[in-house]
Amino acid sequence: MKTVSEFHSLNASTALVSVWYRGRRLDLPEGANLAAALLAVGITSFRETPVSGAPRGPYCMMGACFDCLVTIEGVTRQACMLEVSAGLRISSLADPQGGQDAL
């Protein structure tokens, strides 16, 4: 997993909250777009495709391409359509419990 982000932020520092991503704790800006926030901390691949296992990350950022899918409370969601909130548990479809185990 890449940990150095391709993106740099123009924002003044904002309040961070903790979320769980595949069992790992991340501190992300509260209320930020979830897909953007994950990219900003260097997570570029959000899932592996069910067809070939290829890595995928956000492509359109507007809810149309369904490549930024993550699993939240057992439901597949588009990360680019979600906002960061404290305690969010994010896992992958292949391992829907992955976000829970760490707690």
Binding site: F7, H8, N11, L39, F46, P55, G57, Y59, C60
Partner: peptide, 26 residues
Amino acid sequence: WTLPGVMTVGAGQIMLKQSGLVSARA
């Protein structure tokens, strides 16, 4: 074009507009 790191120009602009994030090596 399916690799992570490949996005639409519109997505790049949304990252900039909404989230204030700009790619360093684009």
